[in-house]
Design a protein around this nucleic acid. Structure first.
Lengths: 188, 188
DNA sequence: GTCTATATTCCGATAGAC
DNA sequence: GTCTATCGGAATATAGAC
């Protein structure tokens, strides 16, 4: 992939995660990368194509992490995910899920399809990690793993939304409580 | 308040909660209410004014419910809130929080201020309800009430976002688990 | 590949008649 | 209060030169 193409996708992801899909324009990207509007259309004929590329890349990243971390204990997998969210929080970015699901009904069909796929992949992964943690004794929680996964995803997603509005302390407060709820005491 | 004015605010709220603040236009409202663009500007000179009215009304509604339900047991207060979210879910609406916090950085200053205020009011109310429930023995949870309130708000907010994408069963699944986590057995 | 130039559409907002 | 008419600006997208 050419540098320009990748730079465009990078910038598009940042804009989606700071301003939202409907609030960013080709002009925003062109301005920062010092290229013209038309150059972006060369790589991505429509805005939907650009959005699809951003989400597709995220789906790939998730698959990579899942494979890379597959052998780790359940609680460590969970903590890796939390760390990634902490990185987003420090940059003031929300996650793609938190940005694109509220706008879902306004997204072009191909993009809706990818967002749905991304959500399914995230849920499947989180469910598997939680099940593993319950089996290896590093996590403890009531109910089905998939229900728990949905609630964990909720907390991660919302921690970025709410801390943006209520203040950064909210992020730590939420994720600390989340981990206390679900993690077994490490020394026992 | 004139009927027209209230109808405009009604429709604006619906549009914010289905399409998002940046994706709806004066034209959307005018089309449904069979009035012209300019008539809306008569009541709301700028789009920000309209957004502010929607959020202000929500803040008022929250204050009313809080007062009305103040004497109920903690778990009943919580269930009342869950019921309200169920109503939103059936209409396919997300909550104002879930719609406006992702777009926060793109909102005009006066609207940002109201969104922040709305979040604070919701958090304060939920914290109080949870504290009451823990005291009267209808709710049980670990940690500070405010941390728990943030996680409960997360689940409510996200249940609308995720069920929109993953399917409606997700809503029930999440809120059932949420209540099981925090509610004491009713007969004991 | 990137540019200039432009077509097209839409949106927020205002002026002024009724 | 609601209308018609319109301005100014911005956005997506395309055509064609280099």
């Amino acid at each position: 992939m050419s540098d320009t193409r990748e730079n465009i996708v990078d910038k598009a992801e940042e804009l989606i995660r700071t301003k939202g899909y409907n609030a960013f324009s080709y002009g925003d990207i062109a301005g920062v990368l010092h290229i013209r509007n038309a150059a972006i259309h060369y790589y991505f004929p429509s805005k939907a194509d650009l959005g699809v590329s951003v989400v597709d890349r995220e789906i790939d990243k998730i698959a990579s992490s899942r494979e890379e971390w597959g052998d780790l204990p359940g609680n460590v997998q969970l903590r890796k995910v939390v760390e990634r969210f902490y990185g987003s929080h420090r940059r003031g970015w929300i996650c793609l899920n938190g940005s694109l699901t509220p706008d879902f009904l306004t997204l072009p069909d191909p993009l809706q399809k990818r967002v749905k796929e991304m959500c399914e992949v995230i849920l499947d992964w989180m469910t598997e990690s939680l099940e593993k943690g319950r089996k290896d004794g590093t996590l403890a929680f009531a109910g089905e793993a998939e229900s728990r996964a949905l609630l964990v995803i909720s907390s991660l997603l919302s921690s970025l939304l709410l801390s943006r509005v209520l203040g950064k302390e909210v992020f730590t407060r939420m994720l600390d409580q989340l981990l206390k709820d679900i993690e077994c005491a490490p020394d026992r």
